[in-house]
């Protein structure tokens, strides 16, 4: 099930995407790329358009204006097939609480068309990496929030996706669990086998070597490597850079 991908093709390419809720514009001509081996943080305040963009990438909303290519495949031409290289962790827990960890992962592997032997091997691998294998037969209902989140990440990685998409995955978790998850996902990106798009409004989750995209009012106002962004903006921290960028955008618009 490993998604081999095409050489030099971005794991995801978003081209001139706009989106409207009725007459209100939620996304304004958004274009970005996420490449394999890259941890891309999509940073924005609440209401910036992160969740709308996430829903478009996962095809929960239809992309009427612009185009989204996942590993070179567009929804417009490939339909739901374009979702194949995608691993998704939603902001809200989407595990079945009445099933065990194993049953949840088995169910997902079948949805992804994985065979029995491969499923068993991948469940063992992904859960072991996240230090959850010993809890494989426990009901999800009995796990705490941090452990459930780890299971969700394991599930998203089960079919060896080319792009891992996480929508504010650490919301509501304690500092230690957040750190474990943030570090693990960074390690995954650094392994060079996967691209990561991580939406967040928590700036301490972003590291200096990450690729940073700042979304404000539905528009991308900054896109680059964190160190480059800091230099360009003349800020010492991501928080200061973010505030400066948002303030600058407001002044530009007023």
């Amino acid at each position: 099930m490993k998604q081999d991908g095409q050489p030099n093709v971005p794991a995801i390419s978003i081209e001139n995407v706009s989106y409207y809720y009725g007459s209100r514009q939620a996304l304004n001509d958004v274009s970005l790329q996420v490449k394999t081996g890259q941890f891309t943080a999509l940073l924005g305040a609440n209401g910036a358009g992160k969740s709308t963009l996430f829903s478009l990438i996962t095809r929960l909303f239809d992309t009427a204006i612009g185009e989204i290519l996942i590993d070179g495949k567009s929804f417009k031409t490939s339909g739901s097939d374009a979702l194949a290289p995608l691993g998704v962790v939603f902001q809200q827990t989407t595990l079945d609480l009445d099933l065990t960890v194993w049953q949840n992962l088995k169910y997902f592997s079948l949805l992804r068309g994985m065979g029995s032997k491969l499923t068993t091997r991948r469940i063992e691998e992904t859960l072991t990496e996240l230090e959850m294998f010993e809890r494989v037969h426990e009901l999800v209902r009995d796990l705490n929030g941090g452990h459930r989140r780890r299971v969700e990440i394991a599930r998203a990685l089960l079919h060896e996706p080319k792009l891992l998409l996480l929508d504010e995955p650490t919301v509501g978790l304690d500092i230690q669990t957040r750190r474990v998850i943030v570090n693990h996902v960074h390690d995954l990106a650094n392994s060079g086998k996967i691209a990561v798009l991580w939406t967040t409004h928590l700036m301490d989750e972003i590291k200096d070597q990450d690729h940073l995209i700042v979304l404000d009012g539905g528009k991308i106002i900054e896109d680059g490597q964190v160190n480059d962004v800091l230099m360009r903006v003349g800020a010492e921290t991501i928080e200061a850079a973010f505030e400066s960028l948002v303030k600058g955008e407001k002044e530009r618009l007023s």
Binding site: T58, R59, L60, S80, L83, V88, Q92, T94, L95, L111
Partner: peptide, 12 residues
């Protein structure tokens, strides 16, 4: 609860 989203984001 979001479980349907897991189904809907599979290539089916």
């Amino acid at each position: 609860m979001g479980s349907m989203r897991v189904l809907l984001t599979t290539p089916l």
